[in-house]
Amino acid sequence: MEFRDLKAQYNKYKTEIDSAIQEVLSNTNFIGGKEVDTLERRLAEYVGVKNCITCANGTEAMTLVMMAWDIKEGDAVFVPDFTFFSTGEVVSFRGATPVFVDVDKDTFNIDTVKLEEAINEVLEEGKLAPKVIIPVDLFGLPADYIEIERIAKKYNLKILEDGAQGFGGSINGKKACGFGDAATTSFFPAKPLGCYGDGGAIFTNDENLANLLKSYKIHGKGDNKYDNVRIGVNSRLDSIQAAVLNIKLTAFTNHELEDVNRAYKLYTERLKGIVQTPIIPEGYVSSFAQYTIKLENKEIRDNLQARLKENSIPSMIYYVKPMHKQEAFSYLENKDCDFEITNKLCETVLSLPMHPYLSEQDIINISKVIIDFLN
């Protein structure tokens, strides 16, 4: 059994994927070209924004936005404590200060009450200038953008949606990667929409920002790549990855998002009341990058993971260590008591196999092992 079965997906679309890759090989247009242009247009249309700018990976997508917004030393950027390292890393990479915020116990996304408290604490201290909020659409569920946008407007902050795990999710019909001033996603192979290497994208309705990003991602180019008007980076999505993504985007929109939510419902029907299953607020749709359950304590969680392994069932722990405890951020003055929910989640969460090609029998078998273990 696979945790996220990329082999099943490839076997289903092997003819289309192989043909798309072969066309790039035959045309020998490996950087840029029609595959990238087509993908950017389709992604923008799907999300419902004016501009999509592809790049080398999801981390650089966020970094490019930080560059374009001139985030620098002395700036404060607010980041959830329960997420992957890169969300805070891109802030420190620019010399700014990540301010970690505890998360909601049910959705695992940034706690908006604690977010506003953190902003006010930074303002009262007076050492840093609050500039950006980076909410994360954790495990495929969009953050509470209705409240986050209210807070951002109140304090004149920008919002960068980290949709690395959230592509395909929505709130009242509005798609993830369409919130805030800009949004980013990742095409890492295990993501809801993944390529066969690294890749990322930025979404925005801001034409000026889009033009700036197009310059920054290709060495700060001006009218052409030999006219360099600013210091940039080299961060491009290659044509083979774009070709693969064009096939996968069709599959994602045709059935994969629906199928992964079918798997969510099947899991939840069997496990509800046995463990704490994912909570999806009314009006929200998750793209289920992960199906994550909560156990009572670390000992039960770890023993369950061992039992699943004995039955050849893979599982993962996202995340074993909070952001505020990462050694790379040890220079920050964080109080462990400010992150009660995150600390608890790191000891109790467990992610089960989850993907559009998961069979009902697989879900029955996985659930049985969990139920038998806990009873």
Rank of each mutant, 00 (worst) to 15 (best):
V275E: 14
I159N: 06
T253D: 01
A164W: 05
K114P: 10
F187L: 04
L193K: 10
I202M: 01
E73G: 08
Y10W: 01
K191I: 07
N334D: 14
G200W: 06
E299G: 04
L43R: 05
I17N: 02
A118E: 11
L237Q: 03
A306W: 12
M323P: 12
G88I: 10
L141Y: 12
T184A: 03
P135S: 09
I274H: 13
R42D: 11
K72M: 00
E299K: 13
D338M: 01
I293T: 02
G220S: 00
N211E: 07
N365W: 10
K225M: 03
L374E: 10
G163I: 11
A118N: 08
F373R: 07
A61V: 06
P130I: 00
P80S: 08
E89I: 04
E2T: 03
L308G: 13
F339M: 03
L6D: 07
K335R: 06
D137N: 15
D18M: 12
K309H: 13
K174P: 07
A251M: 01
L345D: 02
T204K: 00
E207H: 04
E23Q: 13
N254Y: 11
T15C: 06
L304Y: 13
R307A: 14
V103M: 07
V36R: 14
L157Y: 00
D227T: 05
I133V: 15
S367R: 00
N297E: 15
G58E: 05
V136Y: 08
K325G: 05
L128H: 10
I218L: 00
Y10S: 02
D162C: 10
A183E: 08
N27Y: 01
G200P: 09
I53W: 00
S170R: 06
F203C: 03
Y357F: 13
A8C: 01
R42C: 09
D206R: 04
Y284Q: 05
Q361H: 11
I21P: 02
T184E: 09
K294W: 07
E161C: 07
E269M: 13
F30A: 04
A96W: 08
Y267R: 05
H355K: 10
V77K: 01
N172W: 09
Q326L: 14
M354V: 10
Y319P: 08
L350N: 14
F85E: 14
G33A: 10
I119Y: 02
P353G: 08
V229M: 00
S315R: 07
D18F: 05
K309P: 08
P130F: 03
Y267H: 11
K72D: 01
E161A: 06
V229G: 00
V260Q: 01
G222N: 02
T83W: 13
G220C: 01
G194A: 08
T185M: 10
V113A: 14
V229A: 06
